[in-house]
């Protein structure tokens, strides 16, 4: 009896280390990138973040400062810059039908224009229980900016929890629940 109650307690206390809200597949599925130009131009240097991960104001600001794109020069010809901005705006969090996009916008102050997805409150909340050793201190991941390192379905817009696999850290769940 005692053992049983301890077991129940353990199960209640350690629902892995993910967030507390129950994850429904649909909520964590966002519209995939289907724009070849975007995949080519932006995706040649980094993971092609889905446009619904930032609001219109962020995309506009970011696309106007490509000469210093987080320390890199990512300048585009004027025409391409406009075409890509149009794509990003049309599919931004503000205009996207994705439930996920609405959650992203909910916690974000209207006068804030984040240029990094990783500082959006909802994003921070979703990742704040992951130990440092799994991401920042994990040489195979390094940063939360590399979505597709752990979200194996990131390219197709699938951010559901059951598709997460942290490289070099398979036993993370086990480590966590043994404390």
């Amino acid at each position: 009896m005692k053992i049983l109650s301890i077991l129940i307690l353990v199960c209640m206390v350690f629902p892995a280390y993910a967030d507390d809200d129950s994850s429904s597949g649909d909520d964590n599925q966002i519209t995939a990138v289907d724009n070849k130009q975007y995949l080519n131009e932006c995706g040649s240097c980094h993971f092609a973040y889905q446009p619904s991960l930032l609001p219109i104001r962020s995309w506009k600001k970011l696309m106007l400062q490509l000469a210093d794109h987080f320390g890199d020069n990512a300048e585009l010809a004027a025409e391409e810059q406009k075409q890509l901005t149009d794509y990003l705006v049309a599919n931004s969090a503000d205009l996207s039908p994705d439930k996920f996009a609405k959650k992203l916008l909910q916690g974000l102050a209207k006068d804030e224009t984040p240029l990094r997805i990783t500082i959006i409150p909802y994003f921070v909340h979703e990742h704040d229980k992951i130990p440092k050793k799994a991401i920042g201190d994990n040489p195979e991941v390094k940063s939360l900016s590399y979505c597709n390192k752990c979200h194996t379905g990131a390219e197709t817009g699938n951010y559901s929890e059951n598709s997460i696999k942290i490289p070099g850290y398979e036993r993370l769940n086990d480590d966590n629940s043994s404390h």
């Binding site: 040649s44 240097c45 980094h46 993971f47 987080f70 320390g71 890199d72 390094k142 900016s145 590399y146």
Partner: peptide, 8 residues
């Protein structure tokens, strides 16, 4: 090779 910042 790998992009020095993004590793791509």
């Amino acid at each position: 090779a790998k992009h020095t910042r993004t590793g791509k």
